[in-house]
Design a protein around this nucleic acid. Structure first.
Lengths: 376, 376
DNA sequence: GATTTTTATGCACACGTGTTCAGAGCCTGG
DNA sequence: CCAGGCTCTGAACACGTGTGCATAAAAATC
């Protein structure tokens, strides 16, 4: 289909003929019969250079396709106009949106972004931070990582601003953008209680994560505010992913009196829980209500669409970049910004089954099959 | 909650005291009482330097936390160990996985990756390619974009290798990695025909995209091979996203004799179609079978899990990076690599309803409601 | 017209690293 | 003891750009 026979040869010839070096500022200077200093100034729109000369230089530069080397400029100015973004994994939909926000804001200000996955592996995380250090990035954004003693010495040397986004451990030496975990989950659980639920379970993340305990606090607060007794047997922990949610939900379903509603640490956990519920032949929300957290794009496409706490992920990415820009410019920026989520009520929540109200009459199947189907 | 009062002051003091410049190779040279040349050699493991001296230098460098500046090195060597990745949008799950593969492979070889979204906007695309040019990246990967006359002049100047991944228009001046669209869709449609379907619709991407016409060809080939007559009224075009799939599916459902199976350009299109089918009160796969393309993570979480053509997205990213590595090293690389997909048969496909076979007897609901419910 | 001010330009150096080349010191073989 | 080779090191330059400073030319002021 393609002319594989001739093309490679031709392209190779082109490459080897590429011995002609790139056109530099000195070449432009020679062509314009001025010094390279004048060229430098002309292209940077310095008012020091004669408008006519400048125009002539710019014309010649454009004609010869000259593009100043950012690396030489970085060396001279000791600023790279570059930031590093370290993420756990870019194929996490939460992370992807955050990175989009960061990049969109960065490019507007002529910053380029280095992206690096660390896979939640401390060694790898050290490696990428070192690579950022070597490349002399002007700032760093870290999303959802545990930045402990690890970064300390490196950041000490680098002396560049760093912004943490939904980090697990708030840190004194860095700025941060965090979702209001407490208020978000409080609202989510209050919503369930309003619907009439009194046996509301919580499937958290792994232990020890700051955001998990904050969301748990919100859960407790909503219970307390409504005088709903706290039942420790309804608290389980997953892993922030679907599989963890599924396993935890199976345990909940094995209880003598199973919960009528479950608030999940995040959407993926909720989706896993949904799977477990389905596998038991139960329905959402008719039998069990489900609430997630994050509002991943995915949450709209599962059936039923998930009631969840929206995080303005892209916006948070922009905010992180904006904070970084301020700090890199030497100005102040708020040390810890807390952004509020928004409860989106969709179709995965309804009144509990044993206490029919207007909301769940339309889906009142009394003869639902209870026997579990084998999960494939 | 945080000690906002004291922290900023302290951190500012730290920053202003940062007037002490970074430790450079000369500082190490002074400490080790050698010339900077020797330090350079020692740190780069050159055999030219005395082992004891080298060890001493490395010790001193480590103690003072020295890290050689990649930008200075780049200027000296005219290689940056950096690549640019231009994507339409990083929050596209397909793209995210590809980028993950690229980055994972890059970091192993000590390359850093610049990421830039272009939002399918030619102006923006030009801007990011120029920024890559300015930064003197050693190579470029472009995913799923139309690289036309646009890139020509820029690439002429840059003379660096470029690898296109699932690009719409194959190009002579660049290498490429593409999924085998034809074979993938041929298998998908053959699968439907084997199940007994004869009215198989195709919801494509927008017109003019290479991958769309290739997938359509595969569809045609499968039909022809089985002597199933081609019915032009069953061909529609969406936009590669859920909404386009939904609209196209609605049109299909309005036909006198609606199709019993639909092959969709990609998973998102299929998910949109699924929505439309549900809104009509029909079921998948009992009433209509659905096949997607891509195997997004999402396709496992919708109900029913989607039968789809798997693309080894991450692997393709790795392959792109490997090809780039070869080219950057000056060696040859295959000009156009075609990677094969894999049909994953899940729960969205079954035999057509009017012709019951063993496969669909278990879900043989004869009294399915036909009246449409209002879509929310 | 002479002096001062302004404007425009070039020179020279800096940024931090890699690399060629020359040479100093040492060892070996004769 | 000497020539020649080997090992190691430092001086010097290059990479491409930005910028302080000196200065020439032009303009403004007296």
């Amino acid at each position: 289909m393609f002319s594989d026979a001739s093309s490679p040869g031709k392209s190779n010839a082109a490459f080897s003929a590429a011995a002609a070096k790139r056109v530099s500022i000195k070449d432009i200077a020679r062509l314009a019969r001025v010094s390279h200093s004048t060229v430098s100034r002309a292209l940077r729109e310095s008012p020091l250079v004669n408008p006519e000369t400048a125009e002539n230089i710019r014309r010649i530069a454009a004609e010869s396709g000259f593009r100043a080397s950012a690396v030489a400029r970085s060396l001279a100015t000791s600023r790279t106009s570059t930031i590093g973004v370290v993420v756990t994994s870019i194929d996490d939909p939460f992370v992807a949106e955050v990175v989009k926000g960061i990049e969109d804001e960065a490019i507007v200000h002529d910053y380029s972004v280095f992206l690096a996955n660390c896979h939640a592996d401390p060694d790898r995380e050290m490696k990428v931070v070192h690579s950022f250090e070597d490349r002399r990035v002007d700032g760093i954004v870290v999303t959802a990582s545990r930045v402990g003693a690890l970064y300390g010495p490196v950041l000490e040397r680098m002396r560049i601003p760093i912004v943490l986004l939904n980090n697990q451990h708030p840190s004194q030496f860095a700025h941060s953008i965090v979702i209001d975990n407490f208020e978000g989950s409080r609202q989510a659980v209050a919503h369930l209680i309003e619907l009439g639920h009194t046996r509301v379970a919580y499937i958290g993340d792994r232990f020890g994560h700051g955001s998990d305990s904050e969301r748990f606090s919100g859960y407790r607060a909503a219970l307390d505010a409504a005088d709903v007794p706290f039942q420790p047997e309804l608290i389980l922990h997953g892993d922030g992913k679907a599989e963890g949610g599924r396993l935890a939900m199976e345990k909940l379903l094995a209880h003598r009196r199973r919960p009528t509603a479950v608030f999940c640490y995040n959407d993926m956990t909720a989706i896993g829980a949904l799977k477990a519920i389905r596998a038991r032949g139960l329905r959402v929300p008719a039998d069990i209500s489900l609430v997630g957290f994050d509002d991943l794009p995915l949450s709209l496409f599962v059936d039923p669409p998930l009631t969840t706490v929206h995080q303005p992920k892209q916006e948070m990415g922009r905010m992180a970049m904006q904070a970084l820009l301020k700090l890199m410019a030497g100005s102040e920026a708020e040390q810890n910004v807390r952004v509020s989520g928004e409860l989106l009520i969709r179709q995965s929540t309804a009144a509990p089954p044993d206490q029919p109200t207007k909301e769940n009459q339309t889906c009142n199947y009394s003869s639902a099959p209870r026997k579990g189907r084998k999960r494939k």
